[in-house]
Design a binder for these strands. Structure first.
Lengths: 235, 235
DNA sequence: TATCAATATTGATAAATATCAATGGATAAA
DNA sequence: TTTATCCATTGATATTTATCAATATTGATA
């Protein structure tokens, strides 16, 4: 977090924040006031670590803008990519209530902004406000379901299906466009869907030769979404 | 749930239940009273379905006694075993707050007893009682972390390591004994750790030949825990 | 008991995936 | 600029895993 720098939040109060509607909707004016005072808005450039696995949990983190990867050091010491998270995924909630230290690292893979709120402040708000607690329960359920579901889906597929799955995910869920810049390296794609770099490259090339996608360096365009979808489901 | 039958709870009130200490500790006498009145204790024999994927969520489920498997129908229509759950795992909390239908089936793999509490009752209690909400947040975090963590651990290993992992899990985490009855079939083990039945059998036989385990039908005894641990971590 | 279906087991073979090796490119550091 | 490092790519090969086939074995049921 060395190179990050603090700036005042764009909105004067957390009530103006886009997250209000989804999470802080239920707070009273006084509660919003309290929240607004205890928060910081922080920017992280691509590549910077937002949360490091093993650190003591002191704050809530909300990714406001950007894209981040969730990683962990696996039991055999290798880095494992657990998932990709957008702002609305509330990835910062993971294992927040079940551990005193962060179980995963969160690393920006695009220039990002995130909000940091003192953990104790939120804890007190939960005690006072049942609706906030309920809202948090929903968010935690959602992010956990998403991550586990994605892992289970990937396990069912072999390599071509996995590559198609991940391309579809970036195209449909994250960038909502058939043309996008891959925010992670081939090696990281491999870590995410459990395969070797060489095979990631090989299958991407294969898709290129079959004119299903086009590749220009880090930019990918999906030329035949139907075919890709078919491979994702049957390949 | 056809063959299940209702009986009064063993304790007169939920305050006497073993779960009190971990979840309902924070409730007032009146709240416990309310809870006790709205619950049912249900028995499920081995093989019976407790919750079916896709059903509307009407109740909270707490596994009190026994063992259950968590399954889902994967995108390609096959049954997939997501995890094994003991009472303290609070598996019934999964996706309870993020969906109106159950995302997973829960099936007893040993004779079990579980408590059923009306969902709305708990919802109201959450609104009134911030500590209950906090406690639920912890439980949900724990069960999600456990499932995802297990899946990530398994992904790192090849077949021998996976079998060793699952044997170690049954021995250490579930039965706390080096000798135990496997509660699931070879096929289900395969579904759980993503491999084919034939290979499950083959590797179990291999371990038997190497005198790491002994197999008598469904009973397994771990003869060399150290060797099994080594395979789990390096095999 | 006899019968049927599901599970368990083993071997042979095919297919999928990982590993090893070599090279070019890009980028950052000296 | 040179050097070093990491990433991307491709081919050849080895290893792992899945598939196919055949046969027990078990368990439930009529």
């Amino acid at each position: 977090m060395d190179k990050t720098f603090h700036t005042p939040c764009l909105g004067e109060s957390c009530g103006d924040c886009g997250f209000r509607s989804t999470l802080f909707n239920c707070l009273s004016s006084e509660q919003l006031e309290k929240l607004s005072k205890s928060k910081d808005l922080i920017k992280a450039k691509k590549g910077e670590t937002i949360i490091r696995q093993g650190e003591k949990i002191k704050d809530f983190i909300f990714l406001r803008i950007g894209l981040a990867k969730l990683t962990r050091i696996s039991s055999d010491g290798k880095e494992q990519l657990v998932g990709i998270a957008r702002p609305k995924d509330f990835i910062g909630l993971l294992s927040l209530f079940s551990s005193s230290t962060h179980q995963y690292s969160i690393i920006a893979i695009e220039d990002s902004e995130y909000c940091v709120v003192n953990f104790e402040t939120i804890n007190k708000l939960i005690q006072e406000n049942g609706k906030l607690a309920y809202s948090l329960l929903q968010k935690i359920s959602l992010v956990s379901d998403l991550l586990l579901g994605t892992k289970l889906d990937i396990d069912n597929r072999q390599l071509r299906g996995r590559i198609a799955f991940i391309l579809s995910l970036f195209s449909k869920d994250i960038y909502e466009s058939t043309k996008f810049n891959l925010p992670i390296s081939r090696k990281e794609i491999g870590e995410l869907i459990d395969m070797r770099v060489e095979n990631v490259v090989r299958i991407l090339s294969e898709f290129r030769k079959d004119k299903i996608i086009s590749i220009e360096g880090t930019t990918i365009e999906i030329l035949q979404p139907d075919k890709l979808e078919w491979i994702k489901n049957h390949g």
